[in-house]
Write a protein that binds this DNA or RNA. Sequence first.
DNA 1: AGAGTAAATGCAAGTACTTGCATTTACTCT
DNA 2: AGAGTAAATGCAAGTACTTGCATTTACTCT
Lengths: 140, 140
Amino acid sequence: MPSLLTLKGKLLQNGLKLTKSRLLLLEVLLEMPGWVTASEIYKKLAERDKAAHFSTVCRNLDAMTGISLLCRVDKENNGIYYYALHDHKLEHHHHLICKSCGKVAALDFCPLNVLSAGDLQEFSGLECRFEVYGYCKSCR
Amino acid sequence: MPSLLTLKGKLLQNGLKLTKSRLLLLEVLLEMPGWVTASEIYKKLAERDKAAHFSTVCRNLDAMTGISLLCRVDKENNGIYYYALHDHKLEHHHHLICKSCGKVAALDFCPLNVLSAGDLQEFSGLECRFEVYGYCKSCR
DNA sequence: AGAGTAAATGCAAGTACTTGCATTTACTCT
DNA sequence: AGAGTAAATGCAAGTACTTGCATTTACTCT
């Protein structure tokens, strides 16, 4: 788990300001278990700071995801996202998501690396979204 | 482009009833260009039938996507989905999506086919979501 | 044709963010 | 330390579906 100091440094390195709401958000994220939704985070935050705003939380989660400080995965097309602090790998990667318990595991494979030029039909500036859903060992 | 008769047959084969709202939805989809949102479809439908309901449209788009009669792609995590009638391929496939004009192209490659058992960490019952975003030839 | 039944619909309310804009604030520069 | 500025926030309203439940209806079976 990264330290608060490391996280702060990463914000500054990426030109994001160290605001009160961001610092509190980081503290709360450090205390929360693996994967949590924006609403869960907001609730926990609101217990500590009545002035917390859901829109600010979402904007900051987005901003932090943008600088790879957090990972974000989509739970089956419902507009529900899960966020977690990057605990070890900050490189680009994807996820395996359990359809039963919601457990998320890292997947060290990016399909973009194996696509051929023919597949890509002259598209450039590529990014991809890739998530694998299934049942984990304990949910089979 | 499939015929209305073919589409009706596909609904029945999959145990979906031929209701008035589904038939009108298919007619409208046949008249619409490539990729459209649920809202766009609803608007067009409402012009013809004042009694059309947005929730019914969404449910039917989902149902038709479920039986591979439509494709659905997500435009960059905003909860905006695009749908199109499957014009040629009903097999499982993914999409290339232009970040500028929204153009969608089929991608005949599924990452699940090249993942190793080690990558999958004993997950079973796999499905995947895979979309590639980039700029198409004319938007470079 | 008429009854039975499971699926589909209509409606209202909910969900999980997202967006626009005026105001505030963290950092920068003197 | 104080002024300037671009980024961040607060708030209200919007967005694009989604869900729950009572009612209706397409197909099935006699």
